[in-house]
Amino acid sequence: MTFPNIQLPQRALMLSQGVISTPKASFFSLPVLIALTAFLAISETPGILRDWTINQNPVVLDSGDIRDGKCSTRKGFFTNCSAHLNYTYKGQSYDKDVEIMFVDIHSGDYDTNLVISGDHPDLATLSLGLDMLWNRIITLAVFVALLGGTCLAMIFLILRVWRVRGQLREPARLEPVPVEITGFDRRRQRLSVTYADKIGGRKTGRAGHTHFEPGQEPLIVGENGGKAVGLAVWHGNTALPVLLDERLERIEMTPEERTAALAPLAAELGDSRPGLVVQGKKGWSIKARLAAALLVILLIIGGIFGYWLWYVTSATSQFTSPAMDINNMMPESVNRWGCDQLKKRFGDQRAPFGCTASDYSSWK
């Protein structure tokens, strides 16, 4: 699809300063995300490292005392458990506070024991923490990766905008390009517009954000797929195009040059010049959305079940993760059957998590 275009003077032109901006929300959300990522890593990593060490040589203390033990579940599957441990080992008394976080779909209470490291008796935890060790590692890794990745992406986008703004301080040849208006907001007589390079030219898919002063409107040249299409320009080799205003005041040109550039556009669009507000396409019905959501859920359940079935019947190692965690979360009868299948192939080796007896080594 083609859209009306303009002819600009064939020389290096300056653009107004501040025509590319960063959404203010980025400067508020970025510190929050960084703090949340650091908090998760700092609060959970020491406990995981402690339990990893204990798991190398676990010793269950039946004489140990577990006090104030409690678990709370948020959002249906984020579980946090804490307890105070008091025990004596080889004449030495210890007091420890333990807190663990993991993902689990569970109802009712957890049965747990006090476990210490045979090599480092000052390290103690709950057997539940060892049972969920890989679960905790994967949960922490996923959260840190998602939050940390989001932080890095936001930092990259902010730096890219700053670099573009620096490049706009110098004149350069301008290349018109249609862009899709993905969102806009009018507040206090000021218009904020988000747009993306998805339609013509380079089609980088990159999104830009800009503010228009009171009385200014973006240069709209059509609509595509229910969304308005604006006219922007590439400034030399910048990473983002700059959305133009309808009077071309963002480009340093003479009034005569602006009139000459806009004349063909006005003649082509006539009185039917499109506006910023364009009626979008009708979305899916509620029934279709529910059906799609149900299909996705069924596919996920089917995929998880197939992965678990492969693990218990065909995996080359009984310690395949996260299959061990999935097997542990299965109903007791299904878990028992899965462990029996694993035991047929690995019965002469250590039992994996989910199939261990009370000594955390032999098969149950």
Rank of each mutant, 00 (worst) to 15 (best):
R190I: 14
E257H: 00
Q167Y: 05
N55P: 00
T194F: 08
T210K: 06
G69F: 14
I326E: 00
P176L: 06
I181P: 05
S26Q: 11
N5E: 15
I181Q: 07
S21Q: 14
G118N: 09
A357T: 10
P264Q: 14
L244V: 06
K198E: 15
I301N: 04
S63Y: 01
L128P: 10
M330I: 01
F27H: 11
N335F: 10
P46W: 01
A291G: 00
F156E: 03
T316D: 10
D122S: 14
G280I: 04
L85D: 03
Q189L: 10
G230Q: 08
I286E: 14
G338F: 05
S314M: 13
A261H: 11
F3A: 04
F28A: 11
I138K: 05
G47Y: 05
M154Y: 02
F77H: 08
F353K: 02
G64R: 09
R136A: 07
L342F: 02
G47M: 07
L40S: 05
S43L: 12
D51R: 08
R190Y: 03
L61G: 00
Q279C: 08
T194C: 01
R336E: 15
F212L: 12
T356R: 14
G283S: 06
W162S: 07
S361L: 15
R206W: 03
L168Q: 11
K343L: 00
E213C: 05
S26F: 13
K198A: 14
T112V: 02
S26C: 05
G148Y: 11
G148M: 04
G108E: 02
T320R: 03
Y94T: 01
L299G: 07
A357E: 13
W310V: 06
P171L: 14
L36R: 01
I326Y: 08
T259V: 00
G303Y: 10
E257D: 13
A351C: 09
G64F: 09
G108T: 11
A291S: 02
G338Y: 06
I34K: 10
G76H: 02
I181H: 03
I34P: 10
E249L: 04
E257K: 04
G236C: 09
K70R: 12
K343P: 02
L243H: 08
V60W: 02
A141L: 12
D245S: 07
T356G: 01
W308H: 04
A153I: 07
W52A: 13
A228P: 06
T254G: 08
A145L: 15
W52Q: 12
W310F: 15
I286H: 07
A83K: 06
A260G: 10
F305K: 05
L295N: 12
L244F: 11
A239L: 00
I199V: 04
I34H: 08
S361N: 15
G166T: 02
K24M: 08
G347L: 06
D122Q: 14
H84Q: 13
Q10C: 03
W284E: 15
G347Y: 00
P176H: 04
F319A: 00
A239Q: 11
H84P: 06
E268P: 11
A145M: 14
Y87D: 02
Q92E: 15
L85I: 04
G76Y: 02
A145R: 08
K364Y: 12
Q349S: 13
S333Q: 13
R173V: 11
V144S: 14
